[in-house]
Design a binder for these strands. Sequence first.
DNA 1: GCGACGCTGTAGCGTTGCTACATGGATCCG
DNA 2: CGGATCCATGTAGCAACGCTACAGCGTCGC
Lengths: 303, 303
Amino acid sequence: MDPRALQTLRAVGTQGGVTAAAHVLHLTPSAVSQQVHQLERSVGVPLTERVGRGVRLTAAGQALSEAAVDVAVALERASAAVDRLRERPGGTVRVSAFASGAQLLLPGLLERTRALPDVRVECSDDDVPQAQFVGLTDEIDVVVAHRPDGSPGWGRDVVVRHLLREPLDVALAPDHPLARRDELEPQDLADEDWVAVRAGFPVAHVLTAVGARAGSEPRVRHRINDFHVAAALVGAGHGVTLLPRYTFGADPRVRLVPLAGVRAGRLVEALVRRDKAERVVVQRVLSELEALASRITAPPARG
Amino acid sequence: MDPRALQTLRAVGTQGGVTAAAHVLHLTPSAVSQQVHQLERSVGVPLTERVGRGVRLTAAGQALSEAAVDVAVALERASAAVDRLRERPGGTVRVSAFASGAQLLLPGLLERTRALPDVRVECSDDDVPQAQFVGLTDEIDVVVAHRPDGSPGWGRDVVVRHLLREPLDVALAPDHPLARRDELEPQDLADEDWVAVRAGFPVAHVLTAVGARAGSEPRVRHRINDFHVAAALVGAGHGVTLLPRYTFGADPRVRLVPLAGVRAGRLVEALVRRDKAERVVVQRVLSELEALASRITAPPARG
DNA sequence: GCGACGCTGTAGCGTTGCTACATGGATCCG
DNA sequence: CGGATCCATGTAGCAACGCTACAGCGTCGC
C-alpha cells in the first residue's frame, strides 16, 4: 500500500482522468496507469472502470481515494513534528490566485514574506471555472479562490480560510453625472448601458438582481470577463459595470459608487488541501495572507 | 518521507536498538541503519544518537516515531476501507499469549475462528517480562498479556481490550486436609510450605499480601515460575501455591480453594498496536477472543 | 586487555518504477 | 460513414533504489 500510489489514485479521481492526473503529478500517463494497476493488484479489487474513453473510480477506488488524504495528512504531520523542533522551519510554498485576487493580494504577500527567512513563496495566477478551484490544490499549496456570497462551499478535502468579503460597487466614468453620488439605487441605473461578465460567472447574477430591483431589464451592451478591459471600457464612457471595491478602488480610470438595496459581493478565500495545511511553512504563509487581507478591509470603505 | 522508514525508526525506539529492530522487521541491521540515515537526510536533523554501544532516539526521532503510528493507522484504515466493500474480508492474524493464557484461550480461539472463511490465525506462546509485552506488538497482531490487579497500563501506542480477570486460588494436593474447605483465610495457611514464583513476577506480591494478613512470613520452599511445574510439586505434596482459577480449575493434580480476605487476581488483556487494530480481520479475531473470554468467566465459579 | 557485542560503511546484485513508443477503443466531425 | 483525435494501456529498456553480505570500529564485560 504505497502512499504515493494512493495519492496518484486520488489525483485520477479529482483531475478526472489518467492523463490529467499525470500532468499535475509530473508523470507520464503510463506511470499513473501502472501505479493504479499495482494498487489494484495489492488490494485485489478493481479501483477504476472505463467509461467512454476515460476512466472513473469504482466504489472501492473512491474509498481508497478518500483514505489517501488522511494518509497524506499523517505523513505531513510527521514532517511538521520535526519541523517544529527546528529553529527556523522553512521551505517553498506555491500560491495561486485568480486574476483580480492576485492583483489585490500577491504583491503584499510577497512583501510580507520576504522578511521570513528560508521561506520562499512562488506565485502564479490561475483563472479557472468555479468547479476547478479545488482541483488546483493538487499542484498548488495555497489557492486563493472566490465565490458568490451565499454559495455552497468547497468540500471536505480542503481547509478553507476566509480572507475577505469584497463588495461589488458600480463603476462609472469619472465624469459621469452619477459619479459624485455617495451611493446608487438600482433604479438610478435603469437608463444606463451595462458592461457585464459572461453568463455563469459569479458576478453575473448580481446584475440580474439589480435589474429585478429596478423593475426593468438592464441593457447589456458588452460582455467582458476581464475586469481591466471592463474598466477601460467604462472609463472611456461606454457604459457602467460592477467592479470589486478593494481591487479597483484606486483605479484612476473609473469611479466606484456603493450599490444600495442589493447585497452584492464576493467571498475571497484561501483553499489548502488538508495534508498541505499541516506544513508549518504553509501555515505561516497562510497567516500572513490572512493578516494582509484583514488590513485591506480594515478601513471601512475607500474609493 | 517513506512510511516504511518511519516504521523502522519506531521499531528502533521500541525495541531499543538497531539490531533488535532489524530482528522484528526481518531485516539486517545494516538495512535498518541505512533507512534511518536516509530519513535523517530527508528531514535534515539527526534522529538517533549513540549511547554506549547502542543508539537512542533524539527528540526529533521521538517526535517522528510517534507520528509514525498515525501514518500506519491511516494506511491500515485505507486498506480497511476497501476490505469493508469486499464480501468476505480475510487474511492472517498472528496471535500470541503468555504460557498459561495460551493454554486457557488459544484452543478455543482456534476452534471458533476455524469456521471463519479466509481467516487464518497463527498462534505462538511468548513468555516475556511485563515490560516487553508492548514490544511484542511489533511482530504480533494480537498479544494476550497479563498484569497484576491494579497496575499502571500499557501506553497509548496500543489499544487494550479487557478479556477477563482471573482470580488466584490456593492450590492444594487433593488429599490435603484443607482441600475440602469452601474457602481459606490467610491465617489457615500460616503453617504451610509455599511454592512461589520468582520475585518480580505478577503473582509474587500476592503472596506477601497473604503473609501480611496472616501475621507471619510465608515459608517459601521453592521458587517455580512455570505453573505446571508448581502444580506437579503441589500435587506431589511438596507444599501449596497460588494458581489462576480458570486455567487450573480442572487440573486433576491439584484442588483449588478460593482465598478470602485478600484481593488476588490478574488481568488478562489483549494488546493490539493501533495501526493493526484497524484491520478488519484483526477486529473479527479480537471479538471472537472477547466472546470466548466472557464465556469462560460466565459460570461464576467452577473448580 | 581480550573477546563479544552493536552500529555503520562499502560493494554488489536483484527489484522497482520510470520514460519512450506502440496499440486498441471510443468520440467527434466532416 | 470514415478519418482524425483523444485517452488509456501494454512493452522494452534503463536508471535508481534497497537489500544482503562483509568488513571496520568503538564500547562494554570478564
